[in-house]
Design a protein around this nucleic acid. Structure first.
Ligand SMILES: [Zn+2]
Ligand SMILES: [Zn+2]
Length: 981
DNA sequence: TGGACAAATGCG
DNA sequence: GCATTTGTCCAT
């Protein structure tokens, strides 16, 4: 029997495809009977196939079909079952997965297969067959009287026209940033633009993404009421498996034409997709925070681009990334200035200064009075406190014991109702102790206030009022959140207390007061995105009060914010309803400090039983790779170092060039895989939370000093003025060599990050030094006045000089004294000297190849033997002078992946894969010509392969802890590479 | 000498 | 990632 070879992607960490045999129908004339009997189905690209894999069965995705394979006959296995009843996944869907896999640096199979419903990947096809049958019978419900389209105001109409085009036909790719406050009618723009798109073709599908918490049955019902006769599918993580398969299939088959879902819906199969909407695009829940850490927003924009269709990003407080894209014209900004709801006005935002008005039970007298006014008129009040439980921690007054989780770097939170102490990070819980576990004291005090405690206090202050709490604890069960919101809607609640859950999605018609009880903590977070999140949250919660038009004789809608920092610019922007200014100011800070979106980031995380193992792995990771053009920050423990008895550390990698970062990560990840470390590690692209310095104090420092704490530390020491002064100072950063630069004389030694690199070249030793801020390596530091540098080996010493006058790089040359000399670099300030030192790595030679060689791509491997110890920190890089197939020529330098190969020959043998080499050369080629998608491939190169042995030393303790000193010795050899051979 | 456990192996 | 094999330690 004839066979074909299926190339299959599988959900495994192994980054390659797998080949399987599949029997083909017998060729030639077949009689009617035998066709049915013996013809195996003909496999197609995009089909799913059940396979034996290792000792398990797995579902695979066919991404290639061939008539031959390089896999030896003995290893080849046969496919088991083809899911031919399921129409194949489209090439475009596979391309989307391939892009995501590439971008987030994961194997294709780890992206594509988990994107499919679990029941599709099951060994049995029963659920699939059942749901296919069910769907065949299903036809969309026709509503006798669907809700009509309400009229649009001018700005809304303009937005709908811009998004969906006025004429029929394909609107083409365009990204629209739909910017408008709550109540400005964004939803109506989505719906009417969707209606137009759906009317343009019989099959057209529209995908609407909403944040996790906003996907309520209420929203679904509203859409259903509007679009009579159109099938709607929903996709979110809370669905039962069978239900999910049914909705996924409805989308895949094109039956469902509106798909409403959370972030995971972006990876659904949508063969007729014609428009994507992302509601509340700034919402952090669009970023997956485990497994494949993708951003549904970013993938949505790519998918729209791929298909040439419009994508709408809607928000009252757009993410800074989208804001910047709109600024430079990559996105088109559509602004809704008026409120579309009749007679609605923006709520008045007022600040209550906690320094002047001391709160009782967390409530100031003014807030209590305002609530009372609402009670008198029969209106509702909403109190916002982003902290669930009774108290965030309990403590013993006598001995200082506090309720810490033994498994995490976190407090146990007191929950009064079930009399438990609970860790919100690992789920550990215990009974509230009656007495102090260390000294026996009976008097344990709850510290701070959560929603439960507020609820208790409110009931005491307003015994006549109906107080109601909504948070993750009160809505733990399926449907209970809906029931709770219904209670509020029915007017059975006077005072609602809740966490961020109440900020989103629900509009309360009778609500005229919103109180933010204690929002300040987010102002001092180590996470630099905390303030934009706080603004978005307060804006959203404020929107709850603005929905209702003022009633005859009723109260105006008010938002009261209790704060100890009434002058904080965030609150001022909020009072003025001025997100434009707030966003522009933040963007400027980010640009000055070289933070996203002006720099691209990736995070390497490691976790292990003890912190040192994780940190050691990260240090090893830094040392095993050359990294020109990439900034690698020092390994540090994560803010929450321990979670469930696992210690975690991380390493930030940055570059101003996305292609350079991606190319570097590719080589790095392959190298790290080769280390075969048992430390669990992973790389995250575009991380949202890179906060990492464990907070050393609970007492918030004044905001002026902290507002841009991450941006640069020089302001921490010298800034005394207000916020405006601070922003001006940011502008004063001097420019040297076209980069941010700062004078060393204004800095303490520990604010200066010294990076020393000592390299050995043909008998001389070169010492290079550069400096940057401890907190931000993008801001360079130049030496001035009393600061001087010198270096010494044995008895010889030399001062380091600013060679090119840029003030950013200092160099000295010394003769090589002894084979393993110790090199010291001294940072001299007045009479003080801060000395860092490192010992030079031993001289080594390239044992083989001993002369220049020729290497073809088909050779498979290049083996290089070095006379170094087997555990030496060796990294490879290459200089290249290459010609492409179209005869164009370029020069570049890049890191290479090399794998240590245990060998009996003595010394150490390293292997370079020629296919990976070819890829690295083409990556370098493309990095130089990123604008050209059809760039010719590299044909031949003259390469100088450089092998570098690194040794890191001890930095002076007075300098920044982020300082480094490292010594390198290199040896190189030449080779001629030909991709055609 | 076996049994518990950690480490290494290979997946087509 | 996972099932399975191989290696290591140690008590009997
Ligand atoms: Zn005590
Ligand atoms: Zn815990």
């Amino acid at each position: 029997m004839e066979h074909c070879i299926l190339q299959v992607a599988l959900d495994t960490p192994l980054d390659r495809l797998f080949d399987y045999r599949w029997p083909l129908p017998a060729p030639g004339p077949v009689t009617g009977d035998t066709v049915e009997a013996c013809a195996a189905p003909m496999p197609q690209l995009g089909q799913l196939v059940l396979l034996p894999f290792g000792r398990q069965q797995m579902m695979g995705l066919i991404v290639g079909i061939s008539d031959h394979t390089d896999v030896p006959e003995a290893k080849l296995k046969d496919g088991l079952e083809l899911r031919s009843q399921l129409p194949p996944l489209s090439a475009q869907w596979i391309a989307l997965c391939r892009f995501a896999a590439d971008y987030y640096q994961r194997p294709l199979g780890e992206v594509a297969l988990p994107a499919l419903p679990r029941n599709l990947r099951a060994g049995k096809a029963t659920s699939l067959d059942r749901n296919l049958k069910k769907l065949a019978k299903l036809s969309p419900a026709l509503d006798a009287n669907p809700n009509p389209e309400p009229p649009l105001n001018a700005a809304q109409q303009e937005a709908v026209d811009a998004i969906s085009g006025t004429a029929s036909g394909n609107a083409g790719f365009a990204a629209h940033l739909l910017y408008g406050v709550t109540g400005s009618g964004k939803t109506e723009v989505y719906l009417q633009a969707a209606a137009r798109i759906l009317a343009q073709s019989e099959q057209a599908q529209v995908l609407i993404l909403v944040p996790e918490i906003n996907l309520t049955p209420q929203l679904e019902t509203n859409i259903r009421k509007r679009f009579s006769g159109i099938q709607i599918a929903t996709l979110h993580s809370g669905m039962a498996e069978g239900e999910r398969l049914q909705h996924w299939l409805a989308a895949h088959l094109g039956q469902a034409r509106i798909i409403l879902g959370t972030r995971l819906a972006i990876l659904a199969s949508l063969p007729y997709l014609k428009m994507i909407v992302i509601d509340e695009e700034h919402d952090p829940s669009y970023k997956q925070q485990e497994g494949l850490r993708y951003s549904a927003r970013d993938l949505a924009v790519w998918r729209a681009h791929q298909l040439g269709i419009p994508v709408v990003l809607g928000s009252a407080t757009p993410s800074l990334e989208s804001w910047q894209h709109a600024k430079v014209g990559r996105y088109r900004k559509l602004e809704l200035r008026e409120r579309a709801v009749k007679d609605a006005v923006l709520p008045v935002v007022k600040i209550i200064n906690l320094e002047h008005e001391k709160p009782a039970e967390g409530l100031t007298a003014r807030l209590i009075a305002s609530i009372r006014l609402r009670l008198e008129k029969g209106e509702q009040s909403l109190l916002f406190l982003n902290r669930r439980g009774y108290a965030p921690v309990i403590a013993c007054d006598a001995c200082g014991w506090i309720s810490d989780c033994t498994r995490c770097t976190a407090h146990l939170v007191m929950h009064k109702l079930d009399r438990k102490l609970r860790c919100h990070h690992c789920g550990y819980e215990q009974r509230i102790p009656h007495h102090c576990p260390t000294c026996g004291n009976i008097d344990l005090q709850p510290l701070g206030r959560g929603t439960q405690r507020m609820e208790e206090g409110l009931k005491l202050i307003f015994p006549e009022a109906r107080v109601f709490r909504i948070d993750a604890d009160s809505t733990r069960f399926k449907g209970s959140a809906e029931a709770a919101f219904d209670t509020v809607h029915r007017g059975e609640v006077d005072i609602l207390i809740g966490t961020q859950m109440v900020a989103k999605g629900h509009d309360f018609k009778n609500l005229t007061l919103v109180g933010a009880l204690n929002p300040d903590s987010a102002l001092f977070s180590q996470d630099y995105r905390a303030s934009e999140r706080l603004f978005a949250q307060l804006m959203q919660v404020a929107g709850r009060a603005g929905r209702a038009a003022q009633k005859q004789g009723g109260n105006i809608s008010e938002v009261l914010i209790q704060t100890r920092y009434p002058d904080h610019p965030l609150y001022h922007a909020l009072m003025a309803h001025d997100y434009d200014r707030f966003a522009n100011d933040l963007l400027e800070e980010r640009q000055q400090a070289s933070m996203p979106p002006f720099i691209y980031q990736a995070l390497l995380r490691a976790e292990a039983k003890d912190l040192q193992t994780a940190l050691d792995f990260l240090h090893l990771a830094v040392n095993c790779i050359a990294h020109a053009g990439i900034t690698i920050h020092d390994p540090i423990p994560m803010t929450m170092t321990r979670v469930a008895n696992v210690e975690r550390a991380q390493l930030l990698v940055e570059s101003v060039s996305r292609p350079a970062l991606q190319a570097f990560l590719k080589v790095w990840i392959a190298t790290l895989r080769g280390l075969k470390s048992r430390v669990k590690w992973g790389v995250e692209i575009d991380p949202v939370d890179i906060s990492s310095h464990p907070s050393n104090s609970f007492s918030p420092r004044p905001y002026r000093l902290l507002m841009v704490a991450l941006a640069s530390s020089f302001m921490l020491s010298s800034c005394g003025g207000g916020a405006d002064d601070l922003i001006k100072r940011l502008g004063e950063v001097t420019s040297c060599g076209g980069k941010d630069c700062k004078d060393s004389s204004s800095l303490r030694p520990d604010e200066i990050r010294a990076n020393y690199l000592i390299s050995q070249n043909a008998g001389s030793v070169k010492v290079e030094a550069s400096f940057s801020l401890s907190t931000n390596s993008a801001t360079l530091v130049s030496l001035n006045g009393k600061d001087k540098l010198s270096a010494s080996i044995g008895s010889q010493s030399s001062s380091l000089n600013d060679i090119d006058g840029s003030g950013t790089k200092y160099v000295a040359n010394l003769a090589d004294a002894s084979p393993q000399a110790s090199v010291s670099v001294s940072f001299n300030r007045g009479s003080e000297a801060f000395v860092s030192s490192v010992s030079m790595p031993k001289q080594f030679a390239i044992v083989s190849p001993s002369e220049q060689i020729a290497l073809g791509r088909s050779a498979g491997s290049l083996y290089v033997q070095l006379d170094v110890a087997s555990d030496a920190a060796i990294s490879a890089s290459t200089k290249m002078l290459c010609q492409r197939a179209d005869t164009s020529v370029f020069e570049a330098t890049t890191a290479l992946k090399s794998v240590y190969e245990p060998s009996a020959a003595g010394g150490a043998v390293y292997r370079i894969d020629t296919l990976e080499l070819d890829q690295a050369l083409n990556d370098a080629s493309r990095a130089l010509n990123s604008a050209n998608p059809n760039l010719s491939l590299v044909r031949s190169c003259d390469l100088e392969l450089i092998w570098t042995l690194s040794q890191s030393g001890q930095s002076a303790s007075a300098l920044s802890k982020n300082s480094s000193i490292s010594a390198q010795r290199s040896a190189s050899h030449l080779l001629q590479y030909d991709a055609r051979k």
